[in-house]
Design a protein around this nucleic acid. Sequence first.
DNA 1: TTCTGTATATGAACGATGTTCACAAAATCC
DNA 2: GGATTTTGTGAACATCGTTCATATACAGAA
Lengths: 197, 197
Amino acid sequence: MTGKREQTRRELTERLLQAAEELIEVDGLEGTTARTVTQRAQCGLGTLYKCYADLDDLIIHVNSRTLKKLGAELAASTEGFSDPVEQLQALALSYIHFAEQNHTLWTALFEHNATSSEPIPKWHEQENTALLTYIAKPVMGLEPELKDEALAARSRTYFAAIHGLVVISLQGRFVGLSPDVLRSETKLLVSRMAQPK
Amino acid sequence: MTGKREQTRRELTERLLQAAEELIEVDGLEGTTARTVTQRAQCGLGTLYKCYADLDDLIIHVNSRTLKKLGAELAASTEGFSDPVEQLQALALSYIHFAEQNHTLWTALFEHNATSSEPIPKWHEQENTALLTYIAKPVMGLEPELKDEALAARSRTYFAAIHGLVVISLQGRFVGLSPDVLRSETKLLVSRMAQPK
DNA sequence: TTCTGTATATGAACGATGTTCACAAAATCC
DNA sequence: GGATTTTGTGAACATCGTTCATATACAGAA
């Protein structure tokens, strides 16, 4: 019987990922410590560092999962819409919906590593930029003259503007907008952005 | 000779504020600890808790200073422009300039307290929303039908969209835009937002 | 000025954090 | 089945924010 080592290692790795995700979901990033995660995963403290580089690395893997879920919802949101503007509206509303329904996980996406020395690994940066592809498609329909870098930059502009609006609203650094005001302002932002001069 | 106690207390409070500001400027929030701050201010560790509620409170006071500087630059930026759109452009470019020139202090404004249990005190929230006044003025010129809450919401939308763009660019969670692309995209965002349908 | 009482600046100490590492135990190999 | 290698473990360490007894310095009265 061979491969037992590899199996238990995979189980441990998965259990830790699951435990971290649940902890972030319930208590947020601040409650997600090396000790609470390993306790919930029912393994020793040092095991975390056998399965992941460090706690940051584990959280990045949780964020990776979250990005996959978000990507799936974004992809599904544009189905049935042929008009680029309607697609952008659907993407924006889908983003809001995801942020509301998965508040702590979504928050962890950009609050994590906010003050860290280690840079975000490239494979995870890539996962972020990959989401811009969903935006690039309708933007291409709206502004067909844009090529490559210009299209990527414009897509980032669309995303950044919407994202900023959602952050201000849901994070509540300023007094938060109500959910319906957030939606109406988002629709307005998209429709104005989507009318090239 | 009376009032010596109060004077040294004020000096200590100011020295701690100055030390924290310099530390954030040089090392960012992560290098700004209770020990490094008190060491730089040349006072005992416990003194911090005599002058401020805790380390968070001290950093909030640094952020308060930063907001004042930002507010002054924003106020100055619109001088000489009468066209609302030009005023919004000036505000946006001024915001970018401030973020670039005071990168760590500006970052501390919204990265601090990201994962904290204590809510931001109301007087500091008020300092944040006060900045929206600068935006509200030109927006009022552009969309005079907006009243009170609607105007406040629309001003937040303008700010949030620009802020999102600057964050994505300067924070570099995604691969960062070059400074001139950031500026051209910002101008485009403002001009499109500023054309009511 | 001197003496007494009070306010306060201080750093040792505490609990909690992320991370490391020697070691015992378990899996693999011959 | 014995030898060897791999690995999960938690005690230990450095550092963090925060507290508190205490010694020091100041304020008011004589």
